[in-house]
Design a binder for these strands. Structure first.
Length: 509
RNA sequence: GUUCGGUUGGUGUAGUUGGUCAACACGUUUGGUUUUCAUCCAAAAGACCAGGGGUUCGAAUCCCCUACCGAAUACCA
């Protein structure tokens, strides 16, 4: 009975997708691809109160940018199990029947307690220093529900339209065990569980019910989700059992948390702000406050570098290679190699990954990535020229957005010079040298790096100047700064006319 | 508090059935190259594998206890 692998990523549209969520989606994707299975994007929007406009679209756009294509679900093409939004599925009356089934079989019951009454119960229990303050096998006997109320009373309340919820009836003292692919057997006594609400008084199912029903209906075989769900996994196992679906219950894999770079605890938006790195894949503007959170895309990260870095936070391939394409990751991926402990996020290594990918890009790709900025700056340069500039710059940068600072002199006349270096090196006798060099350069045809370097050395010899004395000044003359790519490569790329002009300007000092 | 989960150099991890100097990458430092910077090359420092008990000829690897960290504990997901 081996079923086709089907996994799902099921976020709630309550805000921007956190990078931890992206990693969960990525692992689902890798697992599905690895096994030739399906990957579904399902939107779990059963909480009407927390709906945030734009969040769903943000999730979709983020996955697209990352190159993670679920292939089925909201925003990625409908499949045989549409709709994929739980609010729409609720409209179709999908969940209620299962809540009813649970009630009919005695595994769930109606509860009429108000929020105030629930609060009062908790307060009382707290005051009594009870071990637990939850609605469970013991406390439910003191509450207003179809287990304590008479049949007629319940019927009447239901009939009169009194608000109610449906709660699962957790059995007493039963061992619930589940096998997690990453963690092994996890065993919990049912006494520790509470009678979770399955169906809310607003007519919506809770996460727990909707999640189980949809995973069953959508024939999900593996549930790969964050560790924060581990404590409620036993409840889910019980739900599968009571619904009669235990034979097709998915396998579970609870992923370790992403931790903040310093100290302990879950990586949060605050940490990003505090330490200066994005926590989200894309920029996000909070629709309520207008507050903007920065994203990896806008910070200049390549999506493949971002994904690569993320994949290695909690997972490691069998070999030593760390720079891996999506396809390579698919080949290598296995849940067994996912670690159990939380992974501290390292912004430094993330930059390193970007640098690796920057170097792997072709000059043409880099030129294309740089083009928007060049356009914005009103730079119109020959395409081949820009590519050549990129070729020189790509060894020096970690991000394309550093290119301008590193090589603006390729496109504009040098206006500012590093005076520190000039002060240290300049000698009036170099005037003659730069004039002579300019004159010598004039005669070179074609004007290439090797010839320029030879002429440079010849001129030095001729005028009795040590190359070391003028090299820095020469660089300053061309670029204005003390550092940069290979000097004679720059010389050749700038071209005879520009170089001669800049040398003459230097000589005029 | 309770339940569950976790604990290998600063960080991410590797360490297949217990068996040489605990491996790789990032980061750090030093030297070389680039007459600079970045790259690149070479090297170094840095872990008594959370601590304590066992089991064993032998444990990071198995067992127990303790400590610390985290998560969950809503008519949120």
């Amino acid at each position: 009975m081996s079923r086709k692998v089907r996994v799902r990523f099921a976020p709630s549209p309550t805000g921007p997708l956190h990078m931890g969520g992206v990693r969960t989606a990525l692992y689902n994707y890798l697992f599905a691809k690895k096994h030739g299975g399906d990957f579904v994007l399902r939107i779990e929007d059963t909480d009407q109160g927390r709906f945030v406009p734009g969040a769903e679209n943000y999730i979709i756009e983020s996955l697209k940018w990352c190159g993670i294509d679920p292939g089925e679900g909201v925003g990625f093409g409908n499949g045989p199990h549409a709709p994929y939004r739980q609010s729409e599925r609720k409209e179709k009356g999908i969940y209620k029947q299962y809540a009813q089934q649970l009630i009919d079989s005695g595994h769930a019951y109606y509860a009429f307690d108000t929020t105030e009454e629930l609060e009062e119960m908790r307060k009382k229990l707290e005051a009594a220093k009870a071990k637990s303050t939850s609605y469970n096998a013991i406390t439910r006997q003191t509450m207003k529900n179809s287990l304590t109320l008479s049949e007629d009373d319940v019927k009447q309340r239901l009939g009169s339209g009194e608000p109610y919820v449906v709660r699962i009836k957790i059995p007493r003292n039963e061992e619930v065990r589940l096998k997690d692919i990453i963690r092994g057997w996890v065993v919990v006594n049912s006494n520790e569980l509470d009678d979770k609400v399955l169906y809310k008084s607003d007519g919506m199912p809770t996460y727990h019910l909707a999640n189980i029903v949809d995973d069953y209906l959508m024939q999900v075989t593996h549930v790969i989700r964050g560790e924060e769900w581990l404590p409620s996994a036993p409840l889910h196992v019980l739900l599968y059992r009571y619904l009669g679906w235990e034979n097709v219950m998915p396998e579970f894999a609870h992923l370790p948390l992403l931790l903040k770079p310093d100290g302990n605890g879950k990586l949060s938006k605050r940490d990003g702000d505090r330490l200066g790195f994005p926590v989200f894949p894309l920029n996000w503007t909070d629709p309520a406050s207008g507050e903007v959170s920065s994203g990896y895309r806008e910070k200049g990260y390549f999506p493949d570098a971002f994904i690569n870095m993320l994949a290695l936070l909690g997972w490691h391939p069998s070999g030593n290679e760390e720079v891996l394409s999506l396809d390579q990751m698919v080949q290598e991926f296995s849940l067994e190699r996912v670690s159990k402990s939380g992974a501290k996020f390292d912004p430094e290594k993330t930059k390193w990954f970007n640098q690796q990918y920057l170097r792997k890009r072709t000059p043409a790709e880099l030129a294309a990535a740089w083009k928007p900025e060049l356009d914005l700056r009103g730079v119109s340069a020959d395409a081949v020229y820009v590519e050549n500039v990129c070729r020189l710059l790509q060894e020096k940068a970690q991000f394309v957005n550093e290119f301008w600072a590193l090589g603006s002199y390729f496109f504009t006349t040098v206006i500012s010079y590093d005076d520190e270096i000039i002060k240290k090196r300049w000698n009036d006798k170099f005037k003659g040298f730069f004039n002579a060099l300019a004159a010598a350069y004039e005669k070179i045809e074609p004007f290439d790096a090797v010839t320029a370097e030879n002429i440079f050395k010849q001129t030095c010899e001729l005028l009795g100047v040590k190359t070391g004395e003028v090299m820095q000044l020469y660089r300053i003359a061309l670029t204005g700064t003390g550092g940069g790519p290979a000097l004679f490569e720059i010389t050749a790329l700038l071209g005879k006319k520009t170089v001669v002009e800049r040398l003459q300007k230097m000589a005029e000092r």
